[in-house]
Structure formats: C-alpha cells, structure tokens
Nucleic acid binder design. Structure first.
Lengths: 203, 203
DNA sequence: CTCAAAAAAGAACGATCGTGCTATTTTGCA
DNA sequence: TGCAAAATAGCACGATCGTTCTTTTTTGAG
C-alpha cells in the first residue's frame, strides 16, 4: 500500500474514534491533524474538503461494521445460527473499545437526518443495506423452519433494530450495565424458539 | 407574564424547532437571533451563555414532551388504556409538525452522550424519568391483569423505547411511511392481547 | 405624563474554523 | 546516489462564532 493510502487509513481510524465521541459534523481539520501528527494543510490535502473528509469517515465506519459484524456472521451456517451471530456481534460492538463514544453511524443518522447532501445519502444507503441484510437473514431462518411461518419479517427487523438502538441509548447515556443483556433477551423473545412470550395473555 | 418571559418563551420555541433540525450543539446565537427578530446581544442577554441557552432548550423540549405526551395519557383510565395512549402519543409526536427534524431529545441523547456537563446531566435525568414513567404504566397494566403476570417490565420498557427509536430512525432517515404503523404493531405484539405472534400481512 | 428601570441594539474583540498558496521535506525509482 | 514527483509543512485570508461593553429604545408604575 502506498504511503498516501497508509496515512489516509490512519487518519480515518482516528477520525472514526473522534466522531463516535463528538459526532461527525463537529470534527475539525485542526484537532484531527494534531491527533494524527500532521499539519492542518497536510491532512487537508488528503481529502480536499471537509465534507469529503466526513464522507470518508462515514464510509470507513460502514466498512468497519461490515468487517466486524456482517462478515463474521456469514462464517456461520445459514439460518437462526447466523442470524443470532449477526445480532450478538451487532450488540457487542456497542461495548467494544474502538469507538468509545458509541456507534458513529447511529449518531450520524440523528445528526444528518435533516441535512440533505452526500453524507446523508451515504448514510441512507448504508442503513438500507443493514436493514436488508437483517431481513435476508430473518427470511433464511424462516425458510429453514426456525422462525414461525407467519412471522412478519419487516416488523421483526424493525423491532430488532430498535433493540440495538435501545441498547446503545441505555449504555451510552443511562450507563445501564444490563443493556446488552436486555437486548439479547429481547432477541430471544422475538425470534427464539424458547418461551414465545414475556407478556401475552393467550398463547 | 412579563415581557422578558414572553420573549424568552418565543426564543425557546423557535430554538427547539431549530434544534430538531440541526441539533442542540449546532445552534448559534446569531441565526437564532435572526429567526426571533432580535439582535445577537439582545438574545444573548436572556441566557448569559451559550451553554445556558442549550440547557434551556433541553428543558423546554422536556416540558413540551410532558405537555403533549404524558399529560394527555394521564387523562385516560389507569391500565392498558393509559399505557396505549402514552405510547400512541409518543409515536405520533414524531410525525407532528412542530419539530420538523424529529425529536430533539433523542437527537440530543446521541449528541451529548460523551460530553459531560450540565446538558448531559439534564438529558440523563429526563430520560430516566421517561423510562420510569413507562415502567410505572406497565406495572399498572400488569396489576390490573391486562398484562401477563410473568411479564418482564424493564425488558418491555426497553423494547417499547426501542420501537420509538426505530420509528424515529425509519421516518427521519429512511423516509419509511409505514414506520408509525410498525411501531404500533410492535406495541400490540409486545403488550396487546391480539395475535400472539408477528403475523400480519403487509398491504 | 414622567422617568427610572428594563430590554434590546450596535459595535468590536479574540478565537477558531475551512481553505488556498507557496515552500520544504520525504519518497521511490533510474 | 541523484532527482523528479509525491507528500507534508508553513502561512495567511476571510468568515463565523461567543462574548463584552456601551448606547439607545422601550416598558410600565407612580
């Protein structure tokens, strides 16, 4: 890999860390340069504009998500095992040390949902892909007979993503140490073959 | 009400609107003054510092939530009726016109979860209160026999809050017109006495 | 109506930001 | 090792921000 690409990677890795703490829109060229041991103009030359830098940060975070969550899940056999692996890795990533401020993509979704532009477009595409992936694994599990035949796949994906967000919220803001466990319990309640309900009157 | 308090209210109402679109941390005294028809220093005198302004915006948004969601629910009879009223109003508020950029409190939770200070403290207190309120209504419903006796109340509250966040996400970012319906369906699946499993055919 | 007090405006400051331009250092091939 | 090209540093600019200080306008009680 060329020197340029190596430096760029190092910058982006640090930038994703910072973005998880202060948000993508509050990244500054100056502080990012300082953290990377570069000058402002030296760092700037890698991207050409702040928006291009922010876009690169989004893409780096998305690539990181695929690498840490999606790819490992796809090493598991298709069906409920793979689905559970995806969800577990997704949740556990919220507690990993590489993004101390939480998931930068979730935060970015709230930052840019009302600011049209390339960054928002990239976020939308990424989130749609995440949802599609989740629904595909749910469909696979249903096809394998490991999920009730009358399951509403889009609703299930919607609810599972809600569990991810709730875990993030409770962990990052409320400092709730049980948030990961709650998310995993919720998954089993929604998808598991165990007890079909915590809280339904008639099975 | 004194002139000062009236002007302050008008400023905050506009500020909450803006905060829903660009986030609390990116509010600027200048643009806020322009939107309120005041001068920079005139507006500034009402708060004394930018952080005090941001804190006032958080408190105004929280008061708005109580007024529009919690109070109306408490006009309903205790139990499942009140719980459902709370959840419905909570979801529907995401689609109301007074905060075009979505819920400013949810966005602020992601903005400030890694920035210690008075604003984060106020957000934490508010979110804890929201969760406690939700759990209290769930408990009431359970006591009334309208929720399974073995329901896990903290888990249910966790999942319901996830539905809110998922609805917000799908509406604001993915422009999913069915997001409100999905959240309400999710509520009925988790708490309702209707169909015990996820089955519902999408139109 | 008067006039002191309250509210708002105006102007200016230091700091910080993104960005463009030029000089300097570093890299990797001949 | 020499040297063009790539990578980085240095510097300055205009803009914008929060904040302070002073002046002007507006308010409302006596």
């Amino acid at each position: 890999m060329s020197k340029k690409a190596l430096t760029r990677e190092a910058i982006l890795q640090q930038a994703v860390r910072s973005a998880s703490q202060i948000g993508i829109s509050r990244l500054t060229i100056g502080s990012l340069a300082e953290q990377s041991g570069l000058s402002k103009s030296g760092l700037f030359a890698h991207f050409g504009s702040k928006e291009a830098l922010q876009l690169a940060v989004v893409e780096a975070a998305q690539a990181q998500f695929v690498e840490e969550v999606v790819k490992p899940a796809f090493t598991q056999p298709r069906g409920m095992v793979r689905l559970r692996a995806l969800f577990r890795a997704w949740v556990m990533r919220l507690y990993a040390g590489n993004t101390p401020g939480g998931c930068p993509l979730l935060a970015a979704a709230y930052e840019f949902d009302d600011q049209p532009g390339a960054i928002r477009d990239a976020l939308v595409a990424g989130q749609r892909w995440q949802r599609d992936t989740l629904q595909r694994l749910l469909q696979d599990a249903q096809d394998a007979g490991e999920l009730a035949a009358d399951s509403n796949i889009p609703l299930l994906a919607f609810m599972l993503f809600g569990l991810i967000q709730s875990a993030h919220h409770d962990h990052q803001l409320l400092d709730n140490h049980h948030s990961a466990q709650l998310a995993l319990q919720g998954f089993e309640q929604l998808c598991g073959t165990a007890a079909p309900h915590t809280g339904q009157v008639d099975p």
